[in-house]
């Protein structure tokens, strides 16, 4: 079975994340970048299946700037078989649709039985790339799975929606996205780090994928304006001397919050 995992480099949520006020794009110089945690969990789902099914290959696929190669490599260190990285200057500021088109083209080129993505990235928080990819590939898509079972040519799991929980299933080939209810990713060990150096790592351009970006024929998303909001400031802070609950009640009453 051939599994492709979609991973993405994002600004580290523990750091200071900035949007460029000129372009509206993530300011990559502002802080550290990491492999998005949900993408690591997606790799983990794939590797757990590979651990139990010997004929499984796991490809990590990412679209992102050249510098993202280092974070994509982490997928190889964890145990993925190979990596594909799509890099092209024309992709700077790509919107959701273009991102999905590029990923779908790369997936088609590689061939697949199952695509595993995260449900939501921490920078885009669009949560839409996986289902867009599924729609482009014309295969069933199960989004937001909190549990995953890959067995006998089908993928199934549980999916939280407004008002309840669904059991969903689809025949392969399919696309799924997973939530952080799935287990944390394994850490790359020394052996994995050494082995990763010899694993195939393919870098593709838009031309390799046969994609041309034509702003006249395809509508795109644009940022009209971006503004930074002033940071919040601390207010009153008291140390409990036995009456803090009462004082807090008074604060709420005075501010008409009860």
């Amino acid at each position: 079975m051939k599994i492709i995992v979609l991973v993405k480099e994002v600004p580290d949520t523990y750091g200071d994340r900035k949007l460029s006020l000129q372009t509206g794009l993530a300011d990559r110089g502002a802080g550290d970048v990491v492999l998005d945690e949900i993408g690591e969990r997606a790799v983990e789902v794939a590797l757990r299946h590979a651990d139990s099914a010997a004929d499984t290959t796991v490809t990590v696929l990412s679209m992102g700037p050249e510098s993202a190669a280092a974070t994509v490599r982490k997928g190889l260190q964890m145990g993925a078989t190979d990596a594909v990285h799509v890099v092209d200057d024309e992709l700077v500021g790509a919107d959701l649709t273009l991102t999905a088109e590029v990923l779908a083209a790369a997936i088609r080129r590689a061939g697949f039985d199952l695509v595993i993505a995260g449900n939501l990235s921490t920078d885009g928080t669009g949560g839409m790339v996986p289902v867009m990819v599924g729609e482009l590939l014309e295969v069933p898509t199960l989004t937001g799975l909190a549990s995953v079972n890959i067995e006998g040519g089908t993928v199934s799991g549980t999916r939280g929606v407004d008002g309840g929980v669904q059991q969903v299933t689809a025949p392969l080939p399919a696309v799924i996205s997973i939530t952080e209810a799935l287990p944390d990713a394994r850490m790359p060990n020394f052996k994995g780090i050494m082995a990763a150096k010899k694993k195939p790592f393919e870098t593709l351009s838009l031309a390799d994928l046969g994609i041309t970006v034509d702003p006249a024929s395809q509508a795109r998303s644009i940022m009209v304006s971006v503004a930074e909001k002033p940071a919040r400031e601390a207010g009153i802070k008291i140390v409990d001397e036995g009456d803090a609950g009462t004082k807090l009640a008074e604060f709420l009453v005075q501010n008409r919050l009860v």
């Binding site: 999905a100 839409m128 867009m132 989004t143 929606v161």
Partner: peptide, 23 residues
Amino acid sequence: NSADGRDLAARFAIRTGAVLAAD
């Protein structure tokens, strides 16, 4: 912007070539 709503918007955008504004 719910689990089903995001799917619906995304599928529609791909099928019609429309632009998405998420969240």
